[in-house]
């Protein structure tokens, strides 16, 4: 990649007028949909939420509740079933492990993603375009398939069973870099960076005081998705640290043995799903914004 291929500084995109918001009222297109639409949508939503509710109903009943055709009312045994779950698997340890693992991974992915994304979006340097193409290409690589050498290395290091072994392979993602780059390209005017430099700010100060504040919304979204991904990961934690389980691994251990008491298993499932359900209630809007923004950008 020769220096000549680096494009001239582009005209800042942010100065261009943002496209007018789409208007939905008026005209023949913005009509409120009819009762049928709401009915169908409602039925779909209820149908897709029911398995979750059903888990709670069975998890709060006995194994016999499962034989009922369409149980709707929760039983009284949830606490007792949940206590059985806490006895059967190291639930609190697993919860703590998952919190540590997902938090460390999130901080790392967001930090390094923002740093590299900023460099790719706003700094000029030799080889930038080629390296960016490389990042994009690696997004399609299913890193799951590298578990065998990773396991061999972790075992040689004596890390199996350690949280570090779960965390280290997930510290950076190509997607994180790509996502932050796409966001920052549009959001920071080049003049702002230039101005900071003229004012005598060195590069790292410019990054901290210009880029990071501007990047905050995207960092939040990237963090949210990274956290969810790390929280729900199963294969790698199962392989490298089954004896020191994350929440997903502990949950999966509930369903071992020949006789399965589903009311216990489902009580555990509900219990283990609560953290993300809480997150969903708190940050659901950001999740939706993230999914929908990613779609338009990507």
């Amino acid at each position: 990649m020769s220096a000549s291929t680096i494009p001239a500084p582009p005209v800042p995109d942010t100065l261009a007028p943002s496209p007018p918001k789409r208007r939905r009222r008026g005209g023949g297109l913005g009509n409120r949909p009819g009762f049928l639409t709401y009915g169908l949508l409602g039925a779909f939503v209820l149908g897709s939420a029911y398995p979750l509710w059903w888990s709670f109903v069975v998890g709060s009943g006995t194994n016999r509740t499962r034989a009922e055709t369409l149980p709707l009312i929760p039983g009284e045994n949830f606490i007792r079933n949940a206590m059985t779950v806490l006895d059967a698997v190291p639930f609190w340890l697993a919860l703590g492990n998952s919190l540590i693992v997902a938090s460390v991974i999130t901080v790392s992915v967001v930090t390094f993603g923002t740093l590299a994304g900023y460099a790719f979006a706003k700094l000029r340097f030799r080889g930038r375009d080629g390296l960016m193409i490389f990042v994009i290409a690696t997004m399609a690589i299913p890193t799951q398939l590298g578990i065998i050498p990773l396991f061999i290395v972790m075992r040689q290091l004596g890390w199996t069973g350690e949280l570090g072994a779960i965390i280290v392979p997930m510290l950076v993602t190509a997607f994180g870099v790509f996502f932050m780059r796409q966001y920052l390209v549009d959001v920071i005017p080049d003049e702002l960076i230039e101005a900071a430099r003229v004012d005598g700010a060195n590069q790292i100060r410019t990054f901290l005081h210009v880029a990071v504040p501007a990047a905050r919304p995207a960092m939040a979204i990237l963090g949210l998705f990274t956290f969810m991904l790390a929280w729900t990961d199963y294969l790698w934690p199962l392989v490298v640290a089954p004896q020191n389980p994350t929440l997903q691994v502990a949950l999966s251990q509930l369903q071992s043995g020949y006789y399965v008491d589903y009311s216990i298993v489902l009580a555990g499932t509900v219990l283990a799903s609560l953290p993300l359900l809480v997150l969903f209630v708190v940050a659901g809007r950001q999740l939706i914004a993230g999914i929908m923004q990613g779609a338009v950008k990507g």
Binding site: S48, P51, T232, Y234, Q248, Y262, L266, A272, L276
Partner: peptide, 21 residues
């Protein structure tokens, strides 16, 4: 939000729920 709800249930939990369903 309602449409997205199932997405926050982890694959392991989904597997356990539907294994029972």
């Amino acid at each position: 939000m309602s449409v997205l709800l199932p997405y926050v249930v982890s694959p392991v939990a989904v597997a356990l729920i539907f294994s029972s369903v």
